[in-house]
Structures are given as C-alpha cells and as structure tokens.
Design a protein around this nucleic acid. Structure first.
Lengths: 163, 163
DNA sequence: CCTTTACGTCAACCATGTTGACTTAATTTC
DNA sequence: GAAATTAAGTCAACATGGTTGACGTAAAGG
C-alpha cells in the first residue's frame, strides 16, 4: 500500500482542481461584467443592451438572425432591447440590399462612443491580467477557454497565438 | 519609416487580441452555464438557485452574510431564492452556536444530490477543456483568470499549480 | 443601557428572459 | 406563377431574479 497521506488520491485533487476552475469562472465573470454594468445603469441600460451593442459593433451589418444565434435568446426578448437601442439612436437598422427581408444593424456614432466606453473597461481588465500573466499564460488561457466554448462557435476564434 | 503593411500597428493587434478575450469570456460563460440551466429548468429552479446551492455545498456552514458577499446581490433577492431552497428541502438553516444571530447554511442529502448533478456538467466541460489543452495551458488559464478577478477575492484561489 | 449587527420581511418596481399566436414581406421551390 | 419557407416584427401574458426603501426582531458588544 502506498502512503495515502503523503500522496493523496489523485481523483480528489482533480475534483478540487476542477471546482477551482468552476469557481474562478463565476468570480471572473461577475467582476468582468461588474464595471460595464455600473456605467450602463447610469444611462438606464442593462447588460442585455451591452451585449447587443458589443456584437453589432464587432460585426457591422449583422442581421437579426445572426444576432439571435449568438445571444441565444428569443426574438421577442431581443426585440425589446434592440428596439430601445434604435429609438435611443445607438443603433440603426437598414434593409439588406441582396435579401430585402433582412435587417442589417450598425452602430451610430453615439453607439460607437458607448461601445468604446464599455469595452474599454473590460479591455483594461483583461490587459492588466494579460500583462501580469505573460504571453505563455495568455496562450494557455485562450486554449482552455476555447475548449470550454461549444464546438459550433469555436470557429469564431483563431487562437494560434498569432502575434 | 518602417513598412506599415508588413508590420501592422501593434496597438491594433493588441486591441484585436483583447477583444478576442472579451468575446471568448462571453461565449465560454454562456455555454458554461447553459448545461446546468437546462437541468434546473426541468425542476423549476434557475441559475440563482444554482449559485446558492453551489456555494453552500462548497462552504458548509456558510452564513447568510458571507453568501451575500460572494453573490453580490441584496439580501431581499437572496432571501427569495434561499427561502425557496429551504422550503423544498435542498438546504437547511441552523442558528450559529457561537453567534446566535447568524444562520449557518448546509445542503441536505437532496441538496447534495442536485449539487453533484449540476457541478458534474460543468466539471466535465472543464475537464474536457483541460485535457485537450494540457497542464501548461491550465496554469496559464488559471493565472489569467486569477488576474481578471477583483483583488479582494483573489485570496480564495491558490493557483501555484500545486499538483 | 444603548448601539450595532445579522437576519428576515413586506411592498413596489424593473430588466430580461420565456411561450404562443399571428402578421407582413420577400425569397425560394416546385 | 402558386405555394411554401424564411426573416422579421408584434401583441400579450407570464416567470425569474434583480433593485430600493422601510421596518422588525433578536443577539452581541460597547
């Protein structure tokens, strides 16, 4: 028999290791969204608006269907948020030229400004973490996070460690 | 002048790099919570219940205040969810022995069972990502995620790469 | 004794998700 | 060219889970 105290059950360690990851995901996401949430609250918007503004900014001309596929919410839910953002002139919606059933979404200058402000908060947090961890750690971070994402959405990311 | 085409603006690359991280955080968290959400919906519970069950399971005897500090929600909001979990016998609340104002929370066997079921889903997803990425990447993942978390909560995690 | 702390509770409200039913316009298919 | 499908919008009702504010009670601590 091996000394159980000196060399504890590797399955137990693995369980602890994995629980740590689960917990870090919770705390990291909580704090990652906390900053933008404060700014949004000041102007009467919520996290749902942020997500829409972010992805429209990231993919100008994105259609409503594409947005729904990313956000994985119902069109009724998106409609409320998106409608509000169009009313408040953060986003414009124009009819698609090739398929006139589609609505292509884009940020207005006002939308771009807000998007920048919100993204800057998250970008600075990530930049800080990246700087302190180093390039090797960043590669690992992306690799693991990539594996956490559903296979169907992995193609969105090139994590070959380019730069 | 350096050739701008051959060697693009490093600030632009950095911006892209950071946006990639922001986006991966969104997709990873979306998919990380998606599995448990489905199970919870079947039994009439939500993500808020999951969080409570998780942290009570992780820290048996945790007080209401401690839970509030972790979840960062109001006690009124917690009360609704926690009250329901106590009613449905997932959690028991007993008066603290040393400080009788406190309520110490614990999972019942029923609560343990649900916690295991939910955590298993997330654990398997992380385990899969860890296995595919390798030990070095896991270290990097933890280092970066650690840096994303607010300093006040970092002490919860030992990321020294122990095993 | 008085103050503070831990917890609970009532009430109202808001943001954001859901289902289901239905409409309109445009495209695609047979 | 008619029929089916698709993209998008809309109305309504409802659930979850957050918020603020006010107030109550019991225990602890100065």
């Amino acid at each position: 028999m091996v000394d159980v105290k000196g060399m504890p059950n590797p399955l137990f360690l693995r369980e602890e290791e994995l629980r740590q990851a689960i917990e870090m995901m919770f705390f990291a996401y909580r704090d990652f969204t906390g900053g933008p949430d404060e700014v949004l609250a000041e102007i009467g918007l919520g996290r749902a608006h942020h997500r829409v503004i972010y992805f429209v900014g990231r993919h100008p001309g994105i259609t409503v269907s594409e947005l729904l596929a990313i956000l994985q919410i119902t069109k009724q839910s998106l409609s409320r948020v998106l409608g509000h953002l169009v009313e408040e002139a953060y986003i414009v919606s124009r009819t698609g030229e090739v398929d006139r059933r589609q609505r292509k979404l884009e940020l207005t200058p006002k939308g771009v400004e807000l998007e920048k402000r919100l993204t800057a908060i998250q970008r600075d947090r990530i930049a800080h973490a990246y700087r302190n961890a180093g390039a090797e750690a960043v590669r690992g971070f992306k690799q693991v996070l990539h594996g956490v994402i559903d296979a169907k959405d992995r193609r969105r990311f090139d994590i070959s460690g380019g730069s």
